[in-house]
Protein backbone atom coordinates (compact mmCIF):
# COMPACT_ATOMS: atom_id res chain seq x y z
CA UNK A 1 0.00 0.00 0.00
CA UNK A 2 2.95 2.33 0.51
CA UNK A 3 3.06 3.10 -3.22
CA UNK A 4 -0.34 4.67 -2.79
CA UNK A 5 0.19 6.43 0.52
CA UNK A 6 -0.27 9.91 -0.98
CA UNK A 7 -3.48 8.86 -2.69
CA UNK A 8 -4.71 7.09 0.45
CA UNK A 9 -4.14 10.24 2.45
CA UNK A 10 -5.94 12.30 -0.18
CA UNK A 11 -8.92 9.93 -0.16
CA UNK A 12 -8.98 9.94 3.61
CA UNK A 13 -9.02 13.76 3.72
CA UNK A 14 -11.60 13.91 0.95
CA UNK A 15 -13.83 11.45 2.80
CA UNK A 16 -13.53 13.29 6.09
CA UNK A 17 -14.43 16.58 4.44
CA UNK A 18 -17.40 15.01 2.67
CA UNK A 19 -18.83 13.56 5.84
CA UNK A 20 -18.17 16.48 8.15
CA UNK A 21 -18.70 19.92 6.61
CA UNK A 22 -16.54 21.60 9.24
CA UNK A 23 -13.47 19.61 8.14
CA UNK A 24 -11.02 21.39 5.83
CA UNK A 25 -11.09 20.29 2.22
CA UNK A 26 -7.98 18.48 0.94
CA UNK A 27 -5.01 20.74 0.26
CA UNK A 28 -4.31 18.83 -2.97
CA UNK A 29 -7.42 20.25 -4.62
CA UNK A 30 -5.94 22.56 -7.17
CA UNK A 31 -5.94 26.15 -6.06
CA UNK A 32 -7.73 28.90 -7.71
CA UNK A 33 -9.11 31.01 -4.94
CA UNK A 34 -10.29 29.53 -1.67
CA UNK A 35 -13.97 30.34 -2.23
CA UNK A 36 -13.85 28.55 -5.53
CA UNK A 37 -12.13 25.50 -4.10
CA UNK A 38 -14.89 25.36 -1.52
CA UNK A 39 -17.58 25.78 -4.13
CA UNK A 40 -16.18 23.00 -6.26
CA UNK A 41 -15.81 20.65 -3.34
CA UNK A 42 -19.38 21.37 -2.28
CA UNK A 43 -20.63 19.92 -5.56
CA UNK A 44 -19.35 16.54 -4.39
CA UNK A 45 -20.70 17.07 -0.90
CA UNK A 46 -24.09 18.01 -2.23
CA UNK A 47 -24.17 15.23 -4.81
CA UNK A 48 -23.49 12.67 -2.16
CA UNK A 49 -25.97 14.01 0.36
CA UNK A 50 -28.70 14.89 -2.13
CA UNK A 51 -28.51 11.38 -3.52
CA UNK A 52 -28.78 9.83 -0.08
CA UNK A 53 -31.57 12.15 1.10
CA UNK A 54 -33.53 11.33 -2.05
CA UNK A 55 -32.93 7.62 -1.55
CA UNK A 56 -34.18 7.84 2.05
CA UNK A 57 -37.18 9.89 0.92
CA UNK A 58 -38.07 7.23 -1.66
CA UNK A 59 -37.70 4.55 1.01
CA UNK A 60 -39.62 6.39 3.73
CA UNK A 61 -42.35 8.26 1.82
CA UNK A 62 -44.83 8.35 4.70
CA UNK A 63 -42.27 9.70 7.14
CA UNK A 64 -41.44 12.30 4.52
CA UNK A 65 -45.09 13.26 4.25
CA UNK A 66 -45.56 13.28 8.02
CA UNK A 67 -42.76 15.73 8.73
CA UNK A 68 -42.57 17.62 5.42
CA UNK A 69 -39.73 18.10 2.92
CA UNK A 70 -37.53 20.53 4.78
CA UNK A 71 -37.71 18.77 8.10
CA UNK A 72 -37.10 15.43 6.43
CA UNK A 73 -34.02 16.75 4.71
CA UNK A 74 -32.48 17.99 7.94
CA UNK A 75 -33.41 14.78 9.72
CA UNK A 76 -31.96 12.67 6.91
CA UNK A 77 -28.75 14.71 6.93
CA UNK A 78 -28.40 14.11 10.66
CA UNK A 79 -28.86 10.39 10.04
CA UNK A 80 -26.37 10.34 7.16
CA UNK A 81 -23.81 12.07 9.32
CA UNK A 82 -24.32 9.55 12.07
CA UNK A 83 -24.38 6.56 9.75
CA UNK A 84 -22.96 6.92 6.24
CA UNK A 85 -23.58 4.03 3.82
CA UNK A 86 -21.34 0.99 4.11
CA UNK A 87 -22.46 -0.77 0.94
CA UNK A 88 -22.25 0.08 -2.75
CA UNK A 89 -25.88 -1.03 -3.02
CA UNK A 90 -28.03 1.99 -2.32
CA UNK A 91 -31.05 -0.24 -1.63
CA UNK A 92 -29.30 -1.50 1.51
CA UNK A 93 -29.04 1.98 2.94
CA UNK A 94 -31.32 3.18 5.70
CA UNK A 95 -31.91 -0.06 7.61
CA UNK A 96 -31.22 1.69 10.90
CA UNK A 97 -33.32 4.77 10.32
CA UNK A 98 -35.92 3.52 12.84
CA UNK A 99 -33.28 3.12 15.53
CA UNK A 100 -31.96 6.59 14.77
CA UNK A 101 -35.46 8.07 15.14
CA UNK A 102 -35.85 6.51 18.58
CA UNK A 103 -33.24 8.86 19.95
CA UNK A 104 -33.74 11.80 17.59
CA UNK A 105 -34.90 14.43 20.02
CA UNK A 106 -36.75 16.79 17.64
CA UNK A 107 -39.28 14.05 16.83
CA UNK A 108 -39.78 12.87 20.40
CA UNK A 109 -43.38 14.13 20.19
CA UNK A 110 -44.08 11.65 17.38
CA UNK A 111 -43.53 8.37 19.22
CA UNK A 112 -44.99 6.34 16.36
CA UNK A 113 -42.31 7.50 13.96
CA UNK A 114 -39.77 4.69 14.64
CA UNK A 115 -42.44 2.03 14.02
CA UNK A 116 -43.50 3.82 10.85
CA UNK A 117 -39.88 3.65 9.74
CA UNK A 118 -39.85 -0.08 10.52
CA UNK A 119 -43.02 -0.57 8.50
CA UNK A 120 -41.61 1.29 5.51
CA UNK A 121 -38.30 -0.56 5.72
CA UNK A 122 -40.09 -3.94 5.78
CA UNK A 123 -42.09 -2.80 2.79
CA UNK A 124 -38.83 -1.96 1.01
CA UNK A 125 -37.37 -5.39 1.91
CA UNK A 126 -40.54 -7.10 0.68
CA UNK A 127 -40.24 -5.29 -2.65
CA UNK A 128 -36.72 -6.63 -3.22
CA UNK A 129 -37.12 -10.03 -1.51
CA UNK A 130 -36.55 -13.26 -3.46
CA UNK A 131 -39.51 -14.72 -5.32
CA UNK A 132 -41.23 -17.85 -4.16
CA UNK A 133 -44.31 -19.94 -4.95
CA UNK A 134 -47.40 -19.33 -2.85
CA UNK A 135 -49.27 -22.09 -1.02
CA UNK A 136 -53.07 -22.16 -1.28
CA UNK A 137 -55.15 -22.57 1.84
CA UNK A 138 -57.08 -25.35 0.07
CA UNK A 139 -53.96 -27.50 0.44
CA UNK A 140 -54.75 -27.68 4.15
CA UNK A 141 -58.10 -29.27 3.34
CA UNK A 142 -56.41 -32.05 1.44
CA UNK A 143 -54.35 -33.11 4.47
CA UNK A 144 -55.50 -35.95 6.70
CA UNK A 145 -56.78 -34.38 9.94
CA UNK A 146 -54.30 -36.31 12.08
CA UNK A 147 -51.47 -34.68 10.10
CA UNK A 148 -52.51 -31.17 11.15
CA UNK A 149 -50.57 -31.46 14.38
CA UNK A 150 -47.32 -32.02 12.51
CA UNK A 151 -47.33 -29.52 9.68
CA UNK A 152 -45.04 -26.52 9.38
CA UNK A 153 -46.00 -23.40 7.45
CA UNK A 154 -43.07 -21.78 5.65
CA UNK A 155 -43.25 -18.04 5.30
CA UNK A 156 -42.76 -16.43 1.92
CA UNK A 157 -39.34 -14.66 1.77
CA UNK A 158 -41.15 -11.33 1.34
CA UNK A 159 -43.41 -11.87 4.37
CA UNK A 160 -42.80 -10.16 7.69
CA UNK A 161 -44.86 -8.48 10.36
CA UNK A 162 -44.72 -5.49 12.62
CA UNK A 163 -46.44 -5.36 15.99
CA UNK A 164 -46.77 -1.76 17.12
CA UNK A 165 -48.23 0.06 20.12
CA UNK A 166 -49.44 2.66 17.62
CA UNK A 167 -51.95 2.47 14.77
CA UNK A 168 -49.16 2.58 12.20
CA UNK A 169 -51.07 0.83 9.44
CA UNK A 170 -53.94 3.30 9.71
CA UNK A 171 -51.47 6.20 9.68
CA UNK A 172 -49.62 4.68 6.74
CA UNK A 173 -52.85 4.11 4.84
CA UNK A 174 -54.21 7.63 5.13
CA UNK A 175 -50.84 9.18 4.36
CA UNK A 176 -50.42 7.01 1.31
CA UNK A 177 -53.87 7.08 -0.22
CA UNK A 178 -55.62 10.22 0.97
CA UNK A 179 -55.06 13.68 -0.45
CA UNK A 180 -56.25 15.09 2.87
CA UNK A 181 -55.05 13.05 5.79
CA UNK A 182 -57.74 11.69 8.12
CA UNK A 183 -57.34 12.74 11.75
CA UNK A 184 -56.37 9.83 13.96
CA UNK A 185 -57.26 9.86 17.61
CA UNK A 186 -54.85 9.02 20.38
CA UNK A 187 -57.21 6.36 21.70
CA UNK A 188 -56.84 4.14 18.66
CA UNK A 189 -55.23 0.86 19.68
CA UNK A 190 -51.93 -0.44 18.39
CA UNK A 191 -51.88 -2.49 15.22
CA UNK A 192 -50.07 -5.56 13.96
CA UNK A 193 -49.37 -5.47 10.23
CA UNK A 194 -48.49 -8.20 7.77
CA UNK A 195 -46.11 -7.07 5.03
CA UNK A 196 -45.76 -9.29 2.00
CA UNK A 197 -45.38 -9.40 -1.75
CA UNK A 198 -47.01 -12.46 -3.29
CA UNK A 199 -46.38 -11.34 -6.88
CA UNK A 200 -45.27 -7.84 -7.83
CA UNK A 201 -47.20 -5.57 -5.46
CA UNK A 202 -46.26 -5.12 -1.84
CA UNK A 203 -49.29 -5.60 0.43
CA UNK A 204 -49.87 -4.33 3.94
CA UNK A 205 -52.62 -6.18 5.80
CA UNK A 206 -53.96 -5.84 9.34
CA UNK A 207 -53.48 -8.93 11.48
CA UNK A 208 -55.61 -10.12 14.40
CA UNK A 209 -54.36 -10.11 17.98
CA UNK A 210 -51.65 -12.68 18.67
CA UNK A 211 -50.83 -13.20 15.00
CA UNK A 212 -47.42 -11.60 15.48
CA UNK A 213 -46.38 -14.24 18.03
CA UNK A 214 -47.74 -16.93 15.70
CA UNK A 215 -45.68 -15.67 12.74
CA UNK A 216 -42.53 -15.33 14.82
CA UNK A 217 -42.96 -18.91 16.04
CA UNK A 218 -43.46 -20.15 12.47
CA UNK A 219 -40.32 -18.34 11.39
CA UNK A 220 -38.43 -20.02 14.23
CA UNK A 221 -39.43 -23.42 12.85
CA UNK A 222 -42.26 -24.35 15.21
CA UNK A 223 -45.07 -26.48 13.85
CA UNK A 224 -48.40 -24.77 13.17
CA UNK A 225 -49.75 -26.41 16.30
CA UNK A 226 -46.88 -25.26 18.51
CA UNK A 227 -47.03 -21.77 17.05
CA UNK A 228 -50.76 -21.58 17.75
CA UNK A 229 -50.15 -22.69 21.34
CA UNK A 230 -47.47 -20.01 21.69
CA UNK A 231 -49.85 -17.35 20.40
CA UNK A 232 -52.66 -18.51 22.71
CA UNK A 233 -50.32 -18.48 25.68
CA UNK A 234 -49.59 -14.85 24.90
CA UNK A 235 -53.11 -13.72 24.01
CA UNK A 236 -56.11 -15.81 25.01
CA UNK A 237 -58.16 -14.17 22.27
CA UNK A 238 -55.82 -15.35 19.50
CA UNK A 239 -57.95 -16.52 16.58
CA UNK A 240 -56.14 -19.18 14.57
CA UNK A 241 -58.80 -19.35 11.84
CA UNK A 242 -58.68 -15.61 11.11
CA UNK A 243 -54.92 -15.58 11.27
CA UNK A 244 -54.55 -18.47 8.83
CA UNK A 245 -57.04 -16.90 6.44
CA UNK A 246 -55.16 -13.58 6.60
CA UNK A 247 -51.77 -15.20 6.00
CA UNK A 248 -52.86 -17.41 3.11
CA UNK A 249 -55.00 -14.72 1.49
CA UNK A 250 -52.07 -12.32 1.44
CA UNK A 251 -49.76 -14.92 -0.07
CA UNK A 252 -47.56 -14.98 3.04
CA UNK A 253 -47.19 -18.78 3.13
CA UNK A 254 -44.97 -20.28 0.46
CA UNK A 255 -45.05 -23.93 1.42
CA UNK A 256 -46.81 -26.40 3.72
CA UNK A 257 -44.38 -28.94 5.06
CA UNK A 258 -46.26 -32.14 5.94
CA UNK A 259 -44.06 -33.18 8.88
Amino acid sequence: MSAYSDLTLLQQQFTAALLAPSTQIPAAIAPTDEAKRQKRFNVYRNNMHAGLVAALGARYPVILRLVGDEFFQAMALAFIRQEPPTSPILAEYGAHFARFLETFEPTADLPYLPDMARLEWLRHLAYHAPDSPIAAIAELASLAPEKLGEIRLHLHPAASHLASDYPVLTIWQTNTHDATVQPISADRPGETTLITRPKLDVLLCPLPIGAGIFITALAEGETMSQAAASALADAASFDLAKTLAALFDAGAISHIQPD
Binding site: A138, L169, H177, L203, L204, A250, G251
Partner: peptide, 29 residues
Protein backbone atom coordinates in the same frame (compact mmCIF):
# COMPACT_ATOMS: atom_id res chain seq x y z
CA UNK B 1 -56.74 -27.38 14.90
CA UNK B 2 -59.13 -29.07 12.51
CA UNK B 3 -61.93 -26.71 13.48
CA UNK B 4 -59.71 -23.67 13.01
CA UNK B 5 -58.44 -24.86 9.64
CA UNK B 6 -61.99 -25.54 8.48
CA UNK B 7 -63.07 -22.07 9.56
CA UNK B 8 -60.00 -20.50 7.95
CA UNK B 9 -60.82 -22.10 4.62
CA UNK B 10 -64.40 -20.95 4.91
CA UNK B 11 -63.56 -17.30 5.56
CA UNK B 12 -60.61 -17.00 3.22
CA UNK B 13 -60.87 -15.44 -0.23
CA UNK B 14 -57.85 -16.92 -1.94
CA UNK B 15 -58.32 -15.07 -5.21
CA UNK B 16 -57.05 -11.96 -3.52
CA UNK B 17 -53.55 -13.29 -3.14
CA UNK B 18 -53.40 -14.08 -6.83
CA UNK B 19 -54.52 -10.60 -7.76
CA UNK B 20 -52.46 -8.84 -5.14
CA UNK B 21 -55.27 -6.41 -4.70
CA UNK B 22 -57.56 -7.22 -1.87
CA UNK B 23 -58.94 -3.78 -1.23
CA UNK B 24 -61.00 -4.94 1.70
CA UNK B 25 -58.25 -6.45 3.76
CA UNK B 26 -54.93 -5.21 2.48
CA UNK B 27 -53.40 -1.99 1.26
CA UNK B 28 -51.05 -2.03 -1.64
CA UNK B 29 -49.70 0.45 -4.09
Amino acid sequence: LATAVGAAIAISSPASAQQSADKERCYGI
